[in-house]
Design a protein around this nucleic acid. Sequence first.
DNA 1: GTCTATATTAAGATAGAC
DNA 2: GTCTATCTTAATATAGAC
Lengths: 203, 203
Amino acid sequence: MPDTRKTIVDTARALFYERGYHATSLAQIQKACGVNGGSIYHFFKSKEALLIAVLENYLKQLEAEVMAPAFATTENPRERVFAVLDGYRRMLVESEFAAGCPIGNLALELPDAGPEVRQLIESNFDAWCGFIADCFEGAHVADGETRARLARLALTVMEGGILQARGRRSIGPFDEAVDQFRDYVDRVLDSVDEVDGHAVPSG
Amino acid sequence: MPDTRKTIVDTARALFYERGYHATSLAQIQKACGVNGGSIYHFFKSKEALLIAVLENYLKQLEAEVMAPAFATTENPRERVFAVLDGYRRMLVESEFAAGCPIGNLALELPDAGPEVRQLIESNFDAWCGFIADCFEGAHVADGETRARLARLALTVMEGGILQARGRRSIGPFDEAVDQFRDYVDRVLDSVDEVDGHAVPSG
DNA sequence: GTCTATATTAAGATAGAC
DNA sequence: GTCTATCTTAATATAGAC
């Protein structure tokens, strides 16, 4: 039994990812699916409804598709963070800088999206940061706020690195950004007070 | 003498900035300009040609519009970097997160743009980083590579912070990212070997 | 549930009068 | 150099046969 709905969501996901939301037409999605008619409207009432399904799919698949493969490469919690970042690096390189972070792309491309879309973008960011923060917990960062801040910085650096890499069509800026993040993590965690586990910096 | 060409470029610049390139039609630009006909084609042979003019305008105006106002707020070279970042913060807040970094938006939205567009995006990034690197020179960072790396990190953090702020419709992530960058700059510059001016970290 | 056909709207782009 | 009018294409979306 071919699950057409799933095929449509997967195809739309891939095309939105590589070309952007506005630049992808429903006709292109249909063609890539093999379905020839206005069949998308049997499952989704609008292009935005399809986008919402795609964002729900990202959220649901985040652990299995992004985190689990990265975590499988190392047991070291701190290194798991960098393994996740390396996954995005690989996608950048393999796609020749077409594919960066799907959620980041949409966050910038759809500044006036509806509330459902915005909420799902935020939920995807939150979930991503949650997994990364858990890695820092495994790395014995006792303070929850410090873990959360480092996780959000990981996202900041990743998105900024991807943006520059895509703008320059070079992986250099991404690698440099990750190196700088690693340097910062080392400095912060080295300055953690071992007694109560609180980081020294205030900011 | 009304300079229609300039009006068109300025208007297109503003609309591309707030709505994105694909989401802005030439009809909208014409309407916002007050010019009613297909007059844009008298000056530009295509929408992409207009985009190129906009990117050239950004490059030309970078110093006057972005750097000079920020630099006017303080003589302290290190603080000038943060004054520049604060300028983007203001635009984010005043536009209610519609307007982030115009170049960053285009870098993500136009992954398969023509060579002229890509080159101009890169030139804008380079020019921006050049001004910021010069600030670090004024802050007595003797090593040119360290200055360049910090400048690119400033861009990374700014773009990543803007992206999250827009995704979440909150200035919090941007402020946090700037705080973390300040913390990193403090740590790096404090660890600089005062004798030869080389930073300690390898990365 | 999938197809063909089409409605509707809007996009980028052009022609030609003035 | 600016206008009206229009061409062409392609977008989202719908209707209705099968």
